[in-house]
Design a protein around this nucleic acid. Structure first.
Lengths: 216, 216
DNA sequence: TAAATAGTGTCTCTAAGACACTATCAT
DNA sequence: ATGATAGTGTCTTAGAGACACTATTTA
């Protein structure tokens, strides 16, 4: 039992972990086993340790659910309305995590009821607590950041084609992009560089060049 | 005395309240009276009430120091590294507030040692706790948001000239802007509208039109 | 060969900056 | 008139989108 002369808050982290899979933007959710919101989907999250950094706590929660570390993780916003958790006063620091597609395979192995589900379907269905709002904010942040950062690359593996990257953008923005213009635009930004490696034959059509993220 | 079976965090809000005054970007700071960091400048802030919304707490702290409500206030980021406050585990939700220039007059009346000080000078001097980082993040956010939002208008009163608005941009970005191009750019965005009111004579030169923020 | 995909060329349109110019005030 | 400030015109340039075209593969 802990004591304090100041009002007692619980501090948690919630993670909106996103992947692009099967042409759909998906988020990692866990099914709640107990009240409140029993049976509803919720974002993975949990209490921050008393000596634990916020970012570390978010990364830990994600690893516990997926076994995979996010390529990119950034603080989203903090949600702390009184009553957002009916049990006690909980302030939650929400994080946006972006994972490459292979992460989908590993989710749900550890945690009993973790699953990657379509963002659109979940928002239509409704999530536990205020996780609807968190998820909406996460997607909005992601959509904005694709425009002027290399965040989209985090959805892909080490090496990727520009068609794969374009596909990520198309799914996140929910609109088709001109392949030629996309090519020029990405090459123009200094975010990626060609590997020069001979591309594995992917299917029909001219084989694409492979790229990797450019570090600087 | 409060008790809990979970780790005990204190949750505070810290406010980076900014104004443009005398051609300088200034922030509201209070001088710390006691350890830790006694005698150092700190951002105004304090504990969140157990039944208080985070945004309300931030607004309250600001009013207690200035007597003025911020025109615009937005959540910045949450800072919660263990050890950021040597006394206990404190997670602070930081807010960016933008106030119109007249607010400068009222600050420091209530609180003993509140003052508007130059952001640059304070950053050179060093603030208490991790408030350097918070302030830097706040200014960075502000600089970015001027480019694609109407946040700059919040530094001005109900009615203003485009020269005044340009002055705000010049101070925040620390570079001169072409008056003609600025005019066209602001008019092009649909953020402001002319009042049509006869302008009060300001000084020498052609009298400017007055504008107000456009609500939609 | 045809179909499919990768990547380039080219045109247009828009927005921003440089800078000359006009408009309207105080002195 | 002169100087100062407000606001417009015009030219150039950079970037994005539309879309035709070339390049290289599979079937």
């Amino acid at each position: 039992m802990y004591t304090s002369k100041y009002p007692i808050f619980s501090v948690t982290v919630d993670v909106a972990a996103l992947v692009v899979d099967e042409g759909v933007l998906k988020v990692l959710v866990v099914e709640r086993g107990q009240e409140p919101y029993a049976g509803r989907w919720a974002l993975p999250g949990g209490f921050v340790g008393i000596d634990e950094d916020l970012a570390d706590a978010a990364a830990r929660e994600l690893v516990e659910e997926t076994g995979v570390e996010a390529v990119r993780m950034e603080q989203l916003k903090t949600y702390g309305a009184p009553g957002r958790d009916p049990r006690s006063r909980v302030v939650s620091v929400a994080w946006l995590a972006v994972l490459p597609e292979p992460a989908v395979a590993t989710a749900g192995t550890d945690a009993a009821k973790a699953a990657w589900r379509s963002v659109d379907e979940l928002l239509a269905l409704g999530l536990a607590f205020d996780h609807d709002t968190i998820l909406r904010d996460a997607v909005e942040r992601l959509r904005g950041k694709l425009e002027y950062t290399d965040l989209g690359i985090a959805f892909l593996g080490e090496e990727f084609t520009l068609a794969q990257l374009r596909h990520v953008y198309e799914v996140v923005w929910d609109r088709e992009l001109d392949p030629g213009n996309f090519q020029r635009r990405i090459r123009g930004q200094e975010l990626v560089e060609p590997t020069g490696v001979t591309p594995a034959r992917t299917g029909r059509g001219r084989p694409p060049e492979l790229f990797r993220a450019k570090r600087d």
